[in-house]
Write a protein that binds this DNA or RNA. Structure first.
Lengths: 214, 214
DNA sequence: GTCTATATCGTGATAGAC
DNA sequence: GTCTATCACGATATAGAC
């Protein structure tokens, strides 16, 4: 047989029981929330049984913490990767919006999962993730400060700027059932509306953050 | 004794057992969601016992439907009342933002309650509430169309306009634990940030929706 | 590692006394 | 209307066979 290195003694990630349970848990937790599902349901979704869930993760709560933490990490990374490139700040913001819509279209349930489950005490690990510090490390905040000093960018504190950008990208996904219900939109109509909305908020935020001189 | 009219044969709303349970249910459902609490917990919060909850409301699910529906109604009314006055559209939008922040400061958990619980099948009654029709009946959409024809307002479809306004007002409340966690804000710091943010989004939305001529 | 069987508990809902 | 007692069920978690 082949001799794998020590890091390969575990079975490959995709096919292992542990990984199957983790992926099932991700789907089920994301769709129904911690309180809305049972360990048995996760086991069934993974094609396993309850005992295995607790064998690998000790408890439903610990499994949840694992999933929640990694989801928060994905969420953060989706926002960060664009900042590390070396294009002008204006382009970064524009492409941030583009990427964020693209990412959320692939994970439309993620924002509401995070916003509601973050209220659990299981999930108060945000404080240890150094999210802002890691974004700061990309240098994008410094760029913003510089752009503000140079008069290219409006003088707004970084927290407000982040809230504005997150709000206009994430809200349509957070509120999609409400929006569909209020306006009686089909799924296709809603997707069309999303595209339109992305254009408007891009125009609005770019115009506000980077006002043209008169 | 006094002779109350037939509509007064029921005990006064505030003190009746039925009303106490309803108010307790509102608090508990809002804080923990349908799946996150039990009938017994609601009964305890009301100073009653489980049997009474089911005596008055037949089931946890029916009680929830009642609460959810009335919450959605409050939520809608909070957005509507300002539109019925007869001030210029620009002022209506400006004051809408002001009122919305004020309302949500008093009910900060309402947006996340609605956005997450609306996904339940218990709660798919939005379609029967005619929310948009009722807002349309205030005439505010017609005003917007007129303002757009007169060139005072940017030409944006009404759905996108509503999403933009809701997003920038509601998101800070939806995401408050995330924002506090990311930036390590105390409650007081967060409230200060809210005030600041309200000013920015007012400026941003007013500038975008009602651009000044050159 | 994986299974079945089980212990223990809390849930929603109701029956029946008062 | 209000209570206690109870039923039937499903939950989490674990013990122990293989």
């Amino acid at each position: 047989m082949f001799n794998f290195g020590p890091e390969m003694t575990k079975t490959p990630k995709d096919s292992s029981t542990e990984e199957k349970i983790k992926e099932a848990a991700r789907r089920v937790f994301m769709a129904k929330g911690f309180d809305g599902c049972s360990s048995r349901e996760i086991a069934r979704e993974a094609g396993m049984n309850v005992a295995l869930v607790n064998y690998y993760f000790r408890s439903k709560s610990q499994l949840f913490q694992l999933i929640f933490r990694s989801t928060l990490e994905d969420f953060l990374l989706s926002m960060m990767d664009i900042f590390e490139s070396d294009m002008p700040l204006e382009n970064k913001v524009r492409i941030f919006i583009e990427r964020e819509y693209e990412f959320l279209s692939r994970h439309p349930e993620m924002p509401v999962f995070i916003m509601s489950e973050i209220r659990r005490e299981d999930a108060c690990e945000i404080n240890n993730m150094n999210m802002v510090e890691r974004i700061a490390a990309t240098g994008v905040f410094d760029e913003a400060l510089k752009a503000q000093e140079e008069g290219r960018m409006r003088k707004i504190d970084i927290i407000s700027t982040m809230i504005i950008m997150m709000a206009n990208c994430q809200f349509p996904f957070l509120a999609s059932p409400l929006i569909k219900g209020m306006h009686k939109l089909t799924d296709e109509q809603f997707e069309q509306q999303l595209l339109l909305h992305k254009q408007y908020v891009t125009e609005m935020m770019m115009g506000y953050l980077f006002p043209v001189k008169q």
